[in-house]
Structures are given as structure tokens and as C-alpha cells.
Design a protein around this nucleic acid. Structure first.
Lengths: 371, 371
DNA sequence: CTGAAAGCGCTAACAT
DNA sequence: ATGTTAGCGCTTTCAG
């Protein structure tokens, strides 16, 4: 491994000059700069991260904290992590992955105490997040992806839930739907409360009212079994909703599976619009899912950028950014269609059991039915 | 931040003594040791990771490389990563997450060149893995989770596929199944070849032969849509298999969804046994999946341990470990049952379309049907 | 615009 | 059993 001294010798300059061409903290003649750069290239010089961390204040390390007990780690989550990793690298940082339970504040405290990271990215932030106090006290700069109820004193990048739900509701209303179910994540075993589900439940109200849509929230576990349960609950409602807006990645396959098993055609009899999924996740369902999503990589990028900025300037100015969502129409939504079966009329009086088609005509492959 | 010198002063010893009570590399009187420890506690002393990395050879950092283009990152994958993180921490290491495409060898080379990590853990190893040469050349110790075709010169921890498939086949044969489909992952767009799918296809042969079971391999994309396609292909087979052994986490929900949509009762008409899933994944399906799985956390732990050992001893002795699988019976498998419908007899002559039940009796909730 | 030199906090070889 | 000391490779202040 070549060191800075080697480069300096080869270029015929002093070691500090090498440093300065590297970080541009003071001006260097074009000529010497060129010679130094040539030397660096020739020796295949890479500055030693540890020496840097020791001498300066730049550690070159960021931590990404992903709690293991809020909900599972999905392919969508990975899209965030992977985008953050990439962008961090571009800014000269490596990402440490920290996975503790969100309530293991002691562990986090110890990790922070070692001061080996320049900053921390927090994922899966819940309404009252116990991590916040610890990390705020530690003085280490941090940015959250998502946000707590009380966002004073912190910087965050988050999805714009109001915009997402307006987009979703308008789209479904335009298709002709008059009612919908909002499928969220149960917070039963999470005393601190999950922010997004509540935020979504709130955000749907205004657009639904203005479009005259009836809304029923159903919160279930973050799992395929949760989706099956959601469908069971949905069957008990009357009038039965013709559309579902789902913010529960793992429940969606279960919901679709259960619905299809009952002879519900998707999207003909039940439109499913998923919120927040990565493209990969959306396209890997059958039928492929119509989605309203935030710009995942941009969120991750901005979070890293803001964090890097906070580290550099040491200014604790807070940045709050909500990112604009976009609608991608795929195969899981369409206008509501009354099944041919006369029993299955959409009248409010019909019993839910009547909705189930009785004949073999309900049995078809579960591929895209529409569009 | 207190330094080693502060501790030494407070304890009335020399700085190096502090070092030695810390790492036990030479004996220290019980008394002085006690005094030093007290001082450390009082000052809340944490050794500076960067100074350590600079002065010694211990960086305290491991990299976990997860390629983004082999297949998606699932909750099961996260179980490995999270277990590795935990165990690394116990051994005094932090884990860096590196996510590049598996073919981005240059990037990996650059990462390795900075020599900021003591060792590397490689996940998602494919049959001919381009990463291996690069990392071998770099001289950085590494351990793979999974293994390439040619495992000479490397240390790995992997699932014992032969044992897994013997377990799976025996279990299904004992239930009375006479034929099965092996559902693997298509390697269409992965020129280097995915190891596990082929290994599984191979490993099923011997036990299947000895139990007189017919085997049909079906490889599809790693997605829910892939599962739906698998079911479509399965319908074209005759005699139609009564069981599926699936090594394709994301395809399983799609397969079950498609099957249920066709009126196939799971597990009554089609048993599904999943290979390699984490408990969380298995339990979040509807019905919950019977699985044959390797001990995920132990694999991750062993990999970290072996890596730590290789780093410490600098001996390049190779360790090859195959971990014993276990069978967990849940709700997705049972003995094959002929549907009440007479058309659906299991005779080899029956057309596949005949397998589909025609009446409403096929329509039932998709919860556990058996056991 | 450039060079010299003092650390950063620790490890490990060398003394005692 | 314990103390002393020379670096590790870099950042940054102080001098030119």
C-alpha cells in the first residue's frame, strides 16, 4: 500500500501538498497538481481511512439503523438501503448496518459512544421513537427516513402521504369506485405506534370526503396471513368495497390469494392499489400491482445528502422534506364491474356471502384480467 | 472522550498496561487490573477504533457483500444479515454492507483496495462467481455463505442440500405422494449460473429414485408472477404432481395464489413444501408453510466465526461446513387426497383440465385445510 | 503557493 | 509484571 509520503516523494513535493490536492483546501498550481495526480495514479494510492479518522474529524462512516422489530425487511426496504449505500459511497462514505430492536436503546447508546460514525440514518421511524432521544443526546448528526409525530429538532425525508392518498383516491374515484378499504399495518404489538399507517388513515379522509367515497380502515399483521385475514374482514362489510388501498407490502399477496380463492376476480371485482412499493415488488405480484409510490432512491439519496451536509457544516439547521409520489397503473386496478352473476349485485342490501360467485365461471387463471 | 492516557493516569499505571488489561496479551496482576478497570469505568472509556486500526492490524470492520442482481433481498436474507451483524458485534466487529452488482468487479476491487475491512462475507454466491478471483487476489480473508462450483481455496458455510432434499422427499413419500415438482429459480438472465437451484435439482434425484417418485423440475423467475407461471406449467403435466418442493421464496405466494384461484385446495390437492425459508417467511404465508430449512442464524454465526478465526490466525486453512437441515411441518402439506369430484381421478390418462373441480364445493377459504 | 512539524490514540517491540 | 517508546498515515497549524 502506497502512503501519502510515497506519493509526495515521487511527485517531488511535500506530503502536505498531496493532502491539499486531494481535498482542495488550499490552492495548488496546476502543474504540481498534475504531477501529484500522476504520482497517485502510478502508485495506485488510496488514502488510509483510519489515519484520516484519527487525525481529522472525518470518519468516512455512516450508520444505517434498521430496527428488527417494527416490521420485516422487505425487498422495498432493500431498495432504500441499497440506494443509500450507493449514494453514500459517492459522497465518500461507507454504510454500517446496525440492526437492533428499536427498544434496545442501551445498545444504540453504546454504538454511538464509540463515535466511529460521522452520522446516522434512521429507518422505520415510529410515532414515538425511543431512538431519537438517545441519538439526539449523543450529538451525532442524524437524519430520519420517515418521521416521528414530533419532528422538532430533527431532519427527515419522508413520503408525502397526503399527496399519495389524494393521487390514489382520485384515481380510484375517476375509475368509478364509490368506496374503499384502507389496508394498514396493525400496531398491536408495537406500543410506540407506527407512524405511516396512522398517517395514511388520516390522509385518506379529506380526499375521500371530497370525492364522496366511503372508507373503511382494516389493519392487520405485516404478513401474507394478515392479508388473508384482511380479506375475511372485508367480506363482512356492506356495502362491500370495490377497491383496496394497501399499505402493507407483505399482506398484499395474502389478500390477493384469499380473494382469488373466493372467486373474486382481481381487478374486476376488487381493485388493489398498493402504496409505497418498489417497482420490483409491484411487478412481482400477480396481477402486477398498480401503485402510488414515493421516489425511493431519491428519498434515500436526499437523506444521505442532508446528513453529509449536516456533518460538514456542523450546522444543526433542520431539513424537512416530503417527496412527491407518482402513480403507476399496472394490472391490479380497473373500473368496478358487476359480475355477470345476478346474485352478486352491488346493492347495499345484499348479504356479503352473496358476493361469492357460485358457478365455475368464477374460476379463471389469476393473471391480469383487465387492461 | 477519555483516552487511554487518561485511564493510565487515573489508575497510576503506564498507558501500555491499560492496553494489556484490555486485550490480555500479557499477564497483569489482579490488583492493577482491578484498578485499571475501575478507572476505565469511571471515565467511561471506549478505545478509539481508528487509532486501533491505524496502529494495529485489527480494523474491527467486516464487509458483507450482497449482490443486487442475483435475486431480490427477502426477509429470509435479512435473517442471515441480521444474525451476522449480531454475531460480528459479539466478536468485536461492525458490519459494512456492500451492495454492487455481482459483475461489478471493479467496484469491489476498489472497495477492497482501501483495506478498511479485516475480512469479507460473501452472500448469494453463484456457480462461477466473478467476485471470488478479485477477492482472492486482494489477500483479504473471506468466507462465503453458499458456495461456488469450485470451492477449492475458499472457506464456506452452506446448507446441506442433499440432506435437505432427502428430508423433504422422505417426508412427502411417507405421506404417500408419488410424484413432485421441484420449483427452482430461473437463471435465464444470470449467465454465471445460480448454484442452489442446480444443486437442489441434483440432490433430489437420489432420494426420489429410492422412493420411486417422479420428479419434474420447473424453474421460474424469483417473483410472485414466477409462481403463477409455475402453476400454469404444472397444469400441463400428467400425471399431475401432488406435491411441490419449492426453492423460490417469492414464487411461493404466487404459486399458492394461482393454485387456489384454480380451485386447487392446498394442501389437499397440492402439497407445498418450501426449502430454505426463515420462520417468519414460512409463517406469513396462507396456509403456513411446511419447510425444510437450514439453521439460518447458525450458518451466519459460523461464517462470522470462521472469518474471525482466519483473520486472527492468518492461517489460510479452509473450512467447509454443511449445516444440517430440519423439517418443520406446518399447514401446507398433507397426504394426497383425491377430490370428491370423479373427474379428478389421479389416473395418468386424465387430462389436466379435468383436474379442476367444477362445482362450488371447491370454493373455500384458503386457510389451513389440514392438520 | 508550499514546506515543516506537531499531534490524533493506539499497538507492539523493546526495555527493565 | 510493568514501563518506555517508536511509529501507523493522515490533518492542520504555523512558517516561510
Amino acid at each position: 500500500m502506497a502512503t501519502r509520503a510515497d506519493v509526495a516523494r515521487l511527485a517531488g513535493v511535500s506530503p502536505s501538498t498531496v493532502t491539499y490536492v486531494l481535498n482542495g483546501q488550499r490552492s495548488v498550481t496546476a502543474r504540481t497538481k498534475a504531477r501529484v495526480k500522476a504520482a497517485m495514479r502510478e502508485l495506485n494510492y488510496v488514502p488510509n481511512a483510519f489515519a484520516r479518522g484519527l487525525a481529522g474529524s472525518h470518519r468516512g462512516l455512516l450508520a444505517l439503523h434498521f430496527p428488527t422489530d417494527v416490521h420485516g425487511f422487505t425487498p422495498t426496504e432493500f431498495a432504500y438501503v441499497s440506494a443509500a449505500t450507493d449514494h453514500a459511497r459517492k459522497l465518500g462514505y461507507q454504510l454500517l448496518l446496525w440492526t437492533n430492536r428499536i427498544t434496545d436503546v442501551e445498545e444504540l447508546h453504546a454504538l454511538l459512544g464509540q463515535s466511529i460514525v460521522d452520522g446516522v440514518l434512521l429507518m422505520e421511524v415510529v410515532a414515538e421513537d425511543p431512538r431519537l432521544e438517545v441519538i439526539r443526546d449523543s450529538g451525532v448528526p442524524f437524519v430520519t427516513i420517515g418521521r416521528p409525530d414530533d419532528a422538532r429538532g430533527i431532519s427527515f425525508v419522508d413520503s408525502d402521504y397526503r399527496a399519495m392518498l389524494r393521487l390514489a383516491v382520485d384515481y380510484l374515484a375517476d375509475l368509478g369506485h364509490r368506496s374503499l378499504v384502507v389496508l394498514g399495518q396493525s400496531t398491536a404489538n408495537l406500543e410506540r405506534g407506527a407512524g405511516p399507517t396512522r398517517r395514511i388513515t388520516d390522509a385518506v379522509e379529506e380526499p375521500a370526503r371530497s370525492r364522496g367515497m366511503a372508507v373503511t380502515p382494516i389493519n392487520v399483521e405485516f404478513s401474507s396471513a394478515g392479508g388473508a385475514e384482511a380479506f375475511r374482514r372485508l367480506l363482512l362489510l356492506h356495502p362491500q368495497p370495490t377497491a383496496v388501498v394497501a399499505y402493507n407490502e407483505l399482506a398484499v399477496p395474502g389478500l390477493i390469494g384469499a380473494a382469488t380463492a373466493e372467486g373474486f376476480l382481481i381487478p374486476d371485482q376488487l381493485s388493489v392499489l398498493a402504496i409505497g412499493l418498489s417497482v420490483l415488488s409491484a411487478e412481482s405480484c400477480t396481477p402486477e400491482l398498480t401503485t402510488v409510490t414515493p421516489p425511493i432512491s431519491r428519498i434515500a439519496q436526499r437523506a444521505v445528502e442532508i446528513l453529509a451536509g449536516a456533518i460538514r457544516k456542523k450546522s444543526s439547521e433542520q431539513v424537512h422534506e416530503l417527496m412527491d409520489p407518482s402513480l403507476t397503473v399496472r394490472a391490479s386496478t380497473c373500473e368496478p364491474r358487476s359480475p355477470a352473476d345476478p346474485h352478486a349485485s352491488a346493492s347495499a342490501a345484499s348479504r356479503s356471502a352473496d358476493m361469492r360467485p357460485n358457478g365455475v365461471e368464477g374460476l379463471r387463471p389469476s393473471g391480469p384480467q383487465c387492461r
